[in-house]
Nucleic acid binder design. Sequence first.
DNA 1: TAATAAAGTTAGACTAATCTAACAATTTTT
DNA 2: AAAAATTGTTAGATTAGTCTAACTTTATTA
Lengths: 230, 230
Amino acid sequence: MLSFTEENYLKALVQLTGFEVGSKEVGVNKLASKLNVKPATVTDMVKRLKEKSFVNYKKYGKISLTDSGEKLGMFVVRRHRLWETFLHDQLDFSWNEVHELAEDLEHIHSEKLINGLDKLLGYPSFDPHGDAIPNSKGEIFIPFRKTLSEVEVNESCRVVAVKDNSSDFLQYLDKLGLKINDTIKIIQLEEFDSLTTIKINDKQFVVSPKFTENIYVVCPTCGKAKNCTC
Amino acid sequence: MLSFTEENYLKALVQLTGFEVGSKEVGVNKLASKLNVKPATVTDMVKRLKEKSFVNYKKYGKISLTDSGEKLGMFVVRRHRLWETFLHDQLDFSWNEVHELAEDLEHIHSEKLINGLDKLLGYPSFDPHGDAIPNSKGEIFIPFRKTLSEVEVNESCRVVAVKDNSSDFLQYLDKLGLKINDTIKIIQLEEFDSLTTIKINDKQFVVSPKFTENIYVVCPTCGKAKNCTC
DNA sequence: TAATAAAGTTAGACTAATCTAACAATTTTT
DNA sequence: AAAAATTGTTAGATTAGTCTAACTTTATTA
């Protein structure tokens, strides 16, 4: 059985090397800062994870997940996102309150529990932030999408997910009244200071690149991110 | 913040000294065997709990909970029993599957979560084994009841709770088809070997004292355990 | 390519929770 | 009340996960 800590390492590795991320490997420092521990700690722990065949690693080299490591990490992500969905859908938690609690709940080990939760929630495909939920085999299907920063002036798009799930950012979105599935129209793009004027539900806002780069969108008509002819 | 371990000690103390239990204090050995650790471990831990003012204790003396220790222990019991109820009512777990998982879930700290769960479940008063659930103030109300062994021959009674929550015992009850709220009639009492013949839903069984002492019942008509004139 | 910077490792220490084995206090029994 | 049994304590060791500080390796840059 894996400890909480080991699971957190595997989850962090999935997030740093899995999904649509560029590189399939990561360094000690980057992993350490993701986990809020010192590099020395990671070196130690990674040795232990290598013993158990969850990672590939050699001294002074990069770290990557083995197949079994990735699968276990994926299950942690599955549990995390299902609990977030439960808290949001069944207990009326707002999307900025769910992450912290799910950090604890994700470590409860019971396939029966998690599959029961999945069923109770109606086998959701996405969590409250629009992130895909891995299925019971540990597979994840991430739909194509682009960031708001890739949308042209005068174009409209539909919000499908939020990249930065920090409480601060989500509370800012709440203040703007932005929710998943809302439509955003790009009104104006200021080359000089990179600010963008957008319209959400007929209200106009000026936002920074920090905003446009952290909102995932698709075409509101066809649902595609690229090559849409609508 | 309390650690998992500290919470387990407080919960064990509540179970050994709280509720309708006779003595308000307990020895190191008894607590150790309840927690499946060695007495030496308890001696150490109890010193730490005393530092934090959760228990009263002095060398070679008995252990008892302070008010704050009892309150925290009671909250652990509340969380445990609400999770058991959730697993049973919402995820179709049988009553012999809920305990083990609730042992982990009870340590998730969030008043909002637990009160949300309480609401979702419709503020239940009893868990799947018929045990009372402490309210959000940490108060518990245990209704009067007696064990099946106190019921006279020819008398009928209604099952309200099960004392021994072990998986083995609960599975045995399943085999007999016994559920909370079922009616049991005492058919015959064998003085010689202490076996009792009972009728559950018109089926007859012979059971041992281990059975009759672990089933809590009340009068099926008035719901009282003592002085009923029905 | 040599100097500097960045990244990674090692050794030694710490904490919480546990253990075993030896010992000490208390309680029960004779 | 002395002996025996029970109960509880202490000291020292162990494990997981972390840290700091000093050191080593690899990468970058002048």
